[in-house]
Computed example of a mutant assay.
Amino acid sequence: MAHEQLETYVVETPEQAMALLNPLRAEILSRLVEPASAAEVARGINEIPQRVNYHLKALEKVGLVRRVGSRQVRNLVEVLYLAIARTYVLSEGLNWANDTVQQMKDQGALSHLIHTAERIKRDALFLLERSDQEKEIPSATLDTSIRLASAEERSAFVEEYVQLVNQLVKKYQTAAQGQETYQVILAVYPKEGGDQS
């Protein structure tokens, strides 16, 4: 069953912005590009379902996720949730001073980066354990750096970067059942010790 989902959503309210800046809530949203239950999300991020359910209710309350159905699992009815969009952008029109908005963006991105790094480490350790029992665990990494001349150029680079990755994902995404799902995580951040001038 198809469900409508925006490619990008502009966050206009402080309540939505604060929800997005919570690393766990941002992680939950990233897991809801397809309909999923609290239990499924909890398994994916190694959390307890009750905690995920609490944060899902908070995300639903501010309009960042919505209920898209339910299903029977043994004696329980699981509610399925879907994020309203694949990516989120903080509006410059939020009722905060520009430097506050920028600081929130920076802090939120850094918090998400730390949470993502922890997730990669956890996933990699799990796959290392699996590799003891299987011949091959397919994976790939890309590590590069780029010098950007200004904040405007940095913003343009990130925007194009996201667009290109989304195009690539759409090109190779398969609807076939039973195919292995691969996690794709990309990050952009200042290089330690790099020239900031």
Rank of each mutant, 00 (worst) to 15 (best):
Q163T: 15
D123L: 10
L113Q: 03
T141G: 13
I146W: 05
R74N: 10
G93H: 14
E4R: 10
S30I: 06
R147Q: 13
S70T: 07
V169C: 02
L29S: 01
E4T: 12
Q183E: 12
G63I: 03
T100W: 12
Q102W: 14
K171L: 12
G93I: 11
V68M: 00
S145A: 06
Y9P: 07
V89F: 05
R74W: 09
L82G: 04
E92H: 11
Y189C: 07
V11R: 03
P23G: 02
K170A: 14
E60G: 06
G194S: 04
E134S: 10
V77N: 08
Q16R: 05
E129K: 10
L64S: 00
E78W: 05
R31D: 09
A124D: 08
I185W: 04
V184E: 03
A85Y: 04
E47A: 13
L29P: 08
P49F: 02
H112D: 15
Y189I: 10
N46W: 15
A156I: 02
V169S: 03
Q196G: 05
R147M: 12
L90E: 00
E15P: 10
A36L: 06
Q5N: 01
V62R: 00
G194M: 06
Q102I: 15
R130S: 11
Q16V: 06
K121L: 08
A151F: 07
L56H: 03
L113F: 05
N98S: 15
A176H: 08
E92V: 12
I137T: 00
E15N: 07
Q196H: 09
D132V: 15
V158M: 04
A117I: 07
V184M: 02
K105M: 08
A42N: 01
L24A: 12
L29F: 05
I146T: 06
P14F: 09
I45C: 01
V184F: 03
Q5E: 02
I185R: 02
E4K: 11
E4I: 11
F157V: 03
K61M: 05
L186D: 11
Q103D: 14
S30E: 09
Q16G: 06
Y161K: 01
R147G: 13
L59W: 01
D143G: 13
D143Y: 14
V169A: 00
T174S: 06
P190F: 02
L24W: 09
D132G: 12
L24Q: 12
A109R: 06
Q179K: 11
Q50M: 14
E136R: 05
Q173D: 08
E34Y: 07
V33C: 13
L21Q: 08
A176I: 10
N46P: 13
E159R: 10
T144L: 10
L148C: 00
S139R: 14
E192D: 14
L148K: 00
R66Q: 05
S37E: 02
